[in-house]
Design a protein around this nucleic acid. Structure first.
Lengths: 204, 204
DNA sequence: CTCAGTTGAACGAACGATCGTTCATAGTTT
DNA sequence: AAACTATGAACGATCGTTCGTTCAACTGAG
């Protein structure tokens, strides 16, 4: 009985999708624990409870596993774009974003994974491009909020809102990175970040 | 004529020191080009024009090569501590530090090397400890300047000068990192960083 | 100053382990 | 039967490290 194309997924197709997800999940856990280059394809397969050869039925190679993970990680970023669409005062939106993004970065696994991805992106452009593009979207949206705040007189006139929004995101990321290395608590950093940012953008 | 102990180094000792330096230099260049884990010990030896076995006469292993590089890199940081000792107004010292550290970070090789080191430090504590300790020294000195500026009425009363100084350094580092990934120019970011920081700390 | 004796730098073959990937084969669904 | 997923052995390459050996530089006794 050949399947009509538009119908519900076959049992097999669904099982395959689950397998893929399982492998990706296992890969993430390995990359977090040992890092990308220290993780062997066998580690991923073992962790996923899948044979070595079978992994290559689902992914062309190790590199492509990371590419897919990077794509998933990138999609996680879109949740923050929603914040910028809210019809609230610029200061409120800015605060909401700082807290939301800060909370996201307070989970070390998010930061560690981003480090692995960006670290690999330094030398493998195909990983970085889309990952970076999404970051630029956030920076762009943040810049728009800054400009709106300036127009409304809520924020000071700053020389370069685009660079400013870059710096704000950089500070969040840098803080998260350092909070891992020094075993500090990112969530405790959050209110200081808010204070710092608002002091920098608010009208004197 | 037997050499008195305190005299100039023997030919051999000098040659050895040069060899070590040569190997370290080669390792840095390899790590910059390919990254630590993608670099093989043979790559380093070849680049240094030294045999594989001989490299192990100078270093216990690959890991120790990176440890030594990290130590050298760490020592580079002490140049910034000198700035904080200057007897100038807090705002002047802060500006001098921002420019000096920013200029240092404008050289991509400094940033890339720091990334390799800190990235490895995530999983090998012996690399990170001293490297981080030095960073804390800088943050500590910066914090002292902030406190001095607050006392003098030059800076606003901020809730947590320690965290603030952390965030300033994080922003510089993050900006440098992103300027590499997005192929932007760090030195052009510098004046915006100055503007951002001073807007955040100056008395309104 | 000479010269046997000691040291340790230099070398590259070799080791065992592991790397990412391929493949022939077996099993399962459609 | 055709089409697929699953398996783990096998492949060649490369990994970090060790090894035995060679030889130039240094040492101290004569």
């Amino acid at each position: 009985m050949p399947k009509p194309p538009g119908e519900a997924e076959s049992k097999r197709a669904k099982a395959v999708a689950e397998r893929r997800a399982l492998i990706l999940e296992a890969a993430v856990s390995c990359f977090l624990e040992k890092g990308y280059h220290q993780t062997g394809v066998r580690d991923i397969a073992r962790q996923a409870g899948v044979s070595l050869g079978n992994l290559y039925n689902h992914f062309p190679g190790k590199h492509d596993v990371l590419v897919e993970i990077a794509a998933l990680e990138r999609d996680e970023m879109t949740q923050f774009l929603e914040i910028f669409a809210r019809p609230a005062a610029a200061g409120v939106v800015l605060g909401d974003f700082l807290r939301a993004y800060g909370l996201y970065l307070a989970q070390p696994e998010n930061v560690l994974l981003a480090i692995e991805i960006t670290s690999e992106a330094l030398r493998k452009p195909d990983i970085g491009e889309r990952f970076m593009a999404n970051r630029f979207e956030i920076v762009g949206a943040l810049e728009a909020v800054l400009r709106r705040g300036i127009e409304d007189g809520e924020f000071r006139a700053m020389p370069n809102p685009h660079q400013m929004s870059h710096l704000i995101v950089d500070m969040l990321d840098g803080g998260a990175y350092q909070s891992i290395l020094s075993e500090a608590d990112m969530s405790k950093l959050l209110e200081d970040i808010e204070d710092f940012v608002f002091a920098a953008v608010r009208r004197h």
